[in-house]
Structure formats: C-alpha cells, structure tokens
Amino acid sequence: MPSLKSLRVRINSVKSTQKITKAMKMVAASKLRRAQEAAEAARPYAERMASIMASLSAAQIGSDTAPRLMIGTGSDQVHLLIVATAERGLCGAFNSSIVKLARRKIEELTAQGKTVKILCVGKKGRDQLRRDHASKIADTVDLSKSKKIGFADAQEIADRVLAMFEAGEFDVAHVFYNNFKSVISQIPTAQQLIPAMIAGTNAAAGAPDLQGGIYEFEPDEETILNQLLPRNLSMQVYRALLENAASEQGARMSAMDNATRNAGEMIKKLTTVYNRSRQAQITKELIEIISGAEAV
C-alpha cells in the first residue's frame, strides 16, 4: 500500500503531464488547420500542371526523343527511395508507418537483386532506417530549420534528386509519405517520381476538351517538356511534403488526445485509491482510539 503522500505526488505529476498533452493537442490542431490550408492552396497549381502534362505527353509518348525523366533510363537496376518523415516525434505511428512501408519496399527490391539508395527527408525516418539500412542512405535533407514548408524547400530536394539522376546514380525514384485522409486516418503512400507517372486516371481527366482544336506549342513540345518535367518533380515533392505536414499534425493531434484521455483515467483511478486509503487510515485511527478508551 503506497503512502498517502506518494499518491498525492503521483496524482499531481499525472495532472501536469495531462496539461502538457492537452496543450500539445491544441497546438497540433491549429497547425493542422494551417497545413490543410496550405495543401489545399497548392491543389490548383498541381491540377493545371497535370493537365498540361497530359496534353503534352499524349504527343510525346512513344517517340524516341522523349526526355529521360519521362520514359526512364530503360533500366530499373538502381532504385532511389525518398523517405519523407517528420522532424519530431510524439505523433503516434506517423513516422513508423512510413518507415515500415519503405522497409517492405527495400526488402522486396533487394530480394529481386536491385540496388537501393535512400534519401531521407526528416530526421525521424533517418534514425529508424539507420538501424539496419545505414549503408544505403545516400543523403539526408534536414527540414527542421524551416518552420513552414515552402516551395523552395521542395525545389531544393528536387534539385538534389535531379542532380543524382543526371549523374546516373539511379534509374527509378519513389517518394514515401503519409497521405492525409482525415485526422484519424493517414495512409502511408509510395509514389513513383521518375519516370514520371502520367498515364494516371486523373491526368486523362485533367486534359481540357479543346472542341476539336489542337494545341500550338511555343517554342516546341520538347523544350516545354524539358522545362516542365523538373518542375513537375518539384511539385510532386512539394505535394508530398504538404500532405506529410498535414498528416503529421493530424497524427499528433489524435495521439495527444489519447494521451490526455489516458491521463484523465489514470487520475481517476489514483484518486479512488487515494480516497480509499485515506478512509482506511481514519477508520484504523478510530479503532485505535476506541479500543484504547475501552481498555481503561
């Protein structure tokens, strides 16, 4: 039976923990709203870009001169996995679910005899992957300095990926991130970046109906495509980062909500124990007094 004092101390410490988790939950909620707005604001650009890509690629697919970013290098020996995670923990299974997906992919690829390289974005993912795939990590991007994810951050990552691609360091690139579905549900997703995935359903729907007309291209298709593809890559990375940011806050919010509730339950239990033992002590003292008086 713990003493009354130790129980009181324990209750107080749980109470202050609850205050912290509650505050974290509220901070996450307001950050989530901002992250969601940012993700929403980026949508028009992504949609328009997809529609231009769709219009352009229709003319280019199948031709030998199509840029390598679109059709790939013709081999799929070396894979680059861009694993985007958070910079901080305390957000439930957010980081580990991405890493789990990436790990599965790594195992699958190595089983097929392919070479895997990893580009980590965010230090939590790197810490987890370093345990058993340290030799495969090619580079790490640290985003802890930028408070709000801007397009420039994404562009920097995309630049690095492009430089590696041009240097022939890999053939296929995937990005791993959490797709934000709702506050309680984030879906770890793998998306292929290089070669660019255009033949998706949304791309086909994105091309506007020209009412019988065809596009003119200035200066020409190839030049436009060559400029568009790197930008498309930055955009995909940007989108992944934004989805990730929203998911991170969502995951943190629900994790902290759970923690607050658990703390509440714990306080309730401890208070019951505390009250019981206090009563038991009073009863004991009374019995002692009464039996003392009777003995006289």
Binding site: I52, S55, L56, L210, G213, I214, Y215, E216, F217, E218, P219, T223, I224, Q227
Partner: peptide
C-alpha cells in the same frame, strides 16, 4: 511574355502552350 516573344491573349485565341 512568352519565351518566343510577347503574345496577347484575346477571346477566341487558339489553344496554345508556351513557356
């Protein structure tokens, strides 16, 4: 300001993609 020179877009412009 298009790559190949400025162009004005008026109603009824033909479909175009330009840098």
């Amino acid at each position: 300001p298009g790559e190949a020179g400025d162009f004005g877009v008026l109603p009824g412009h033909s479909p175009l993609i330009s840098t």
